[in-house]
C-alpha cells in the first residue's frame, strides 16, 4: 500500500508522516518512508541525528522516474539507498525530484 501525504507548508506533514510510519512499524509491517523535501526533516522526525540525516544518500532522479530497466531491483534500491532509522522505518531520500531543472 502506498500513502501520499500532501498539504501546504507548515501544516505538519512531516510530523504526521513520521507518526503514521511509527504506527505501521510498531504493528510489525515493513515501512518505507520517502522524503521529497530538500531539508532532511523527515529523517530527523524518524529519529536520525542531524549528522546522520545529512548523510542519507540521494536517490538518483533516473531511479525515481524510471524503471531501472531491470538493472536494479527494489531490493538493490533499498540496500544501496535505504537508511534504517531508530523508528524501524527505512528512509529513502528522493529530493532530486524537486531540484532545479528536474521538472
Amino acid at each position: 500500500m502506498k500513502i501520499g501525504i500532501v498539504g501546504k507548508g507548515g501544516v505538519g506533514k512531516t510530523t504526521t508522516s513520521a507518526l503514521l510510519c511509527q504506527v505501521y512499524a510498531r504493528r510489525g509491517q515493513r515501512v518505507l518512508a520517502v522524503d521529497t523535501d530538500s531539508n532532511p526533516n523527515l529523517a530527523l522526525s524518524l529519529g536520525l541525528s542531524p549528522d546522520d540525516a545529512d548523510r542519507v544518500p540521494v536517490l538518483p532522479r533516473s531511479l525515481v522516474v524510471g524503471t531501472g530497466n531491470g538493472a536494479i531491483t527494489p531490493a538493490d534500491l533499498l540496500r544501496d539507498y535505504g537508511v534504517a532509522t531508530p523508528s524501524s522505518v527505512t528512509l529513502l531520500n528522493a529530493m532530486a525530484i524537486t531540484q532545479a531543472g528536474a521538472g
Binding site: I3, I5, K13, T14, T98
Partner: peptide, 11 residues
C-alpha cells in the same frame, strides 16, 4: 520490499 510506502509529498 515494503508493506507500507509513505511518501511525504513536500514537493
Amino acid at each position: 520490499e515494503a508493506d507500507v510506502t509513505l511518501v511525504d509529498m513536500e514537493a
